[in-house]
């Protein structure tokens, strides 16, 4: 085999490999290059996070605007402190409402943001004051049964 043809094949092989890695990262993995300078960090306290996990998306109106980077338990307030890394292209007002939602009935859980009307925007390190915990099925059923019982009583 001629030296140059061999070099050509090896070159093609390496390029194919790199392209494959890029396809994996960009097309399959949907890699968004998160630059720390282009994002800001906010936290929120939740009474119950249900099945929320690190890396879960933060969505507003269904659009991904950030990701959950850390979940800690606070011994001061005895609730969960969720840290979110937000895309700096999407600033949110200070009175934004954060709730833990579920995609579909059995899908993964994410944080939904509903923007408020405040003039002041959330800054890096700020805390969201208005939060809504995850739905817990047992509580829901419990509440439903309680209401049902109350309805029956009224008859």
């Amino acid at each position: 085999m001629q030296r140059t043809t061999m070099d050509l094949w090896v070159g093609l092989f390496v390029i194919t490999g790199i392209i494959a890695l890029m396809i994996l990262s960009l097309k399959v993995g949907n890699l968004n290059v998160y630059n720390p300078s282009q994002s800001y960090v906010i936290t929120g306290n939740f009474e119950n996070i249900g099945g929320l996990k690190v890396r879960a998306p933060v969505k507003s109106a269904g659009v991904v605007v950030g990701r959950v980077t850390d979940i800690q338990f606070s011994t001061q307030t005895y609730d969960a402190v969720v840290t979110m890394n937000m895309d700096s292209r999407f600033p949110f007002p200070k009175d934004t409402f954060a709730s833990i939602l579920t995609a579909g009935l059995l899908g993964e859980q994410y944080i939904g943001l509903a923007a408020g009307g405040d003039e002041v925007m959330l800054k890096n390190g700020d805390k969201i004051m208005k939060t809504n915990s995850a739905m817990v099925l047992e509580e829901l059923i419990g509440r439903f049964l309680f209401n049902k019982a109350a309805e029956d009583d009224s008859f």
């Binding site: 092989f13 194919t16 490999g17 790199i18 494959a20 994996l24 399959v28």
Partner: peptide, 8 residues
């Protein structure tokens, strides 16, 4: 490279 090509 081979593993990446395999996955793709």
């Amino acid at each position: 490279f081979l593993a990446a090509i395999f996955s793709v």
